[in-house]
Design a protein around this nucleic acid. Sequence first.
DNA 1: CGATTTTTGGCAAACGTTTGCTATAAATCG
DNA 2: CGATTTATAGCAAACGTTTGCCAAAAATCG
Lengths: 356, 356
Amino acid sequence: MNKNKDVAGEEQSGALMADVARLAGVAISTVSRALANPGRVNEKTRAKINAAARQLGYTPNAMARGLRVGKSNIVMIILPGSLYYGVSQIIPQVLQSINKSLIQGGYNLMIANLDRDEISERHILDLAFGGSVRGAIILSSKLPEVDGRSLAGSGLPIVSMLLDMSDAGLQSVVTNDREAVRDVTAELIRLGHRRFFYLAGPEDNYHDVERYAGVLEALGAAGLSEELVHRSGGQLDYQHGFDIGVQAADDFVQLTEKPTAVIATSDDMAISFVSRIQRTGLSIPDDLSVVSFDGSPVCEFSSPPLSTIEQPVEEMGRAAVDLLLDAIDQRQKAGKVRTVIRSKLILRESVAPPRS
Amino acid sequence: MNKNKDVAGEEQSGALMADVARLAGVAISTVSRALANPGRVNEKTRAKINAAARQLGYTPNAMARGLRVGKSNIVMIILPGSLYYGVSQIIPQVLQSINKSLIQGGYNLMIANLDRDEISERHILDLAFGGSVRGAIILSSKLPEVDGRSLAGSGLPIVSMLLDMSDAGLQSVVTNDREAVRDVTAELIRLGHRRFFYLAGPEDNYHDVERYAGVLEALGAAGLSEELVHRSGGQLDYQHGFDIGVQAADDFVQLTEKPTAVIATSDDMAISFVSRIQRTGLSIPDDLSVVSFDGSPVCEFSSPPLSTIEQPVEEMGRAAVDLLLDAIDQRQKAGKVRTVIRSKLILRESVAPPRS
DNA sequence: CGATTTTTGGCAAACGTTTGCTATAAATCG
DNA sequence: CGATTTATAGCAAACGTTTGCCAAAAATCG
């Protein structure tokens, strides 16, 4: 990028395509073609060009290419808010999985936001409308919309991951929240549990709606009343999982008819709930079985080891990137708008039949 | 970005500066100046331009600007490897802190790598030499170097964070690993502990070197022999913290003279060690005190709550970005090449005096 | 009020790469 | 071997913004 070609210092300046052309004795456009469209250039000429490029350590300028072609090689990810919380590595795992697949497709991943306030929404829209990004993967409900600019109206290819936005027309890659929770609830019922304590995420949150529905479905399928499940929480976001669990433990001790099984909808709330409830003298799983959601590795080292539903993050990330790249390349796959990848229940020592 | 100005569909095409100029009845260069150098444009003209820009939802094209100016608005982060592991949120916290500060400075954060293999090194160098990024923050030792291209030779402003690379000439923002571990070891000594079990990270790893040195310093300061500390592990990377802790527990039970205090150098290894050692019947902290490093929030909900050294990630991230922006703007602060921000010991129930 | 200084708008070229089009060379065909 | 077809290299313009320079308008000075 250094225009001063005479610098004899240690710094390796960024060679231009023009430099390669000069050294190889061809036109700039021939260099461009040799690198990007090799079949259009004679083999001998191509060899000369490749040698020159190697000698100069030539690296294409992505901004110039993006400007000319009208497309960048960056994909942005729109987060629900914080990048991390508690023991959950879901978001970092998402980032890792997506990044890995994007790099293989020749793209770079950029984090677009760390909040969903107006400043962040505006920033996301700048990236979208400024041509800086080629597509987006969104992990959050509601597409950004500020001052007459909306992400939906930008024409940018978008894929939703973790939550189902297929109703809004977005290709979505999700796990089977509802079904997974239904199945683990059915397992608790099979073990003999008849009273349940549900640790809720934020009310109306997609994940909470799905997971709670799974509980109710299992009860219905077993001919049991929905009144057998006590719902705790609903005010705090998943980011405050530890707090949810602490408050739930307080809630639990107030109950006169104690439930025998806890269904926590994130590992954080399960971990802090268990910690607090054990201090009241209750024993897990003798007095109370506990299951959780997310699949954080640390659950194996809890006391006792925690049963949890493990999300297939890596697979979902791959699928999301595949869908996005298809949309970018405008390969209209006549496929489903909603891709479901199943979570997996990991049963550990926190679950047992209830005391008779 | 859509060249077809006649599209009457729902899609809001990216308006160009040329469109704003036409609507405002001025030249393109005047629009550019009004937006970027307002003092150079008459107030009345500026108002016309701002109104036109607002009406059209004009968003600058960052690629065009970057190309013309010769500088992008992206900063890359070079990771030591995986983005996440165990309960540690250090890397995600780093990303969040850095991203927050960068956005305030008008930059975007891009993840450059997820590995340190040759493909990833090459990719990092492409970003550096291709003009795609304006600076780098590195969380890993050794600067990328492949095929005659080296990051050090690219002229790109670089700041190291978490590990001290000031000897290699890089501005570095670190925490006081050595001192923090020395102080916590001194506290254990003060409580009466005389035999220690050190859970090591990878041998020769910067962090392990510093932290182990802290242990030895505290012993020396108390006039105690270095032989009082048994070192366990050293083969696995911090990413495998849980495994390190499991192996350390096996190691520990083999010891004839049991140490009374454990100094673990990451929360992951402490958590898994405690889990395993408790299964052998030992009690924390009655039989064995445990301290850890990182400050993961879940430590509060361990059984018993785990004492840990909390890293000042947010503050370090801010400092690193400040240094980087200074370097980008070529503001030569006549300052130290090494910035140290202190970690903080959080004492919880995992530490007690040894049984007499 | 004329001379001088400052402000302001616009032209044109720059940034590094890509690609349509044309002319020429090379290959193929009868 | 001449006519026809195909392959290949190069010219020039495009992408969207920025900025040096110049001319003209406006402001200030004596």
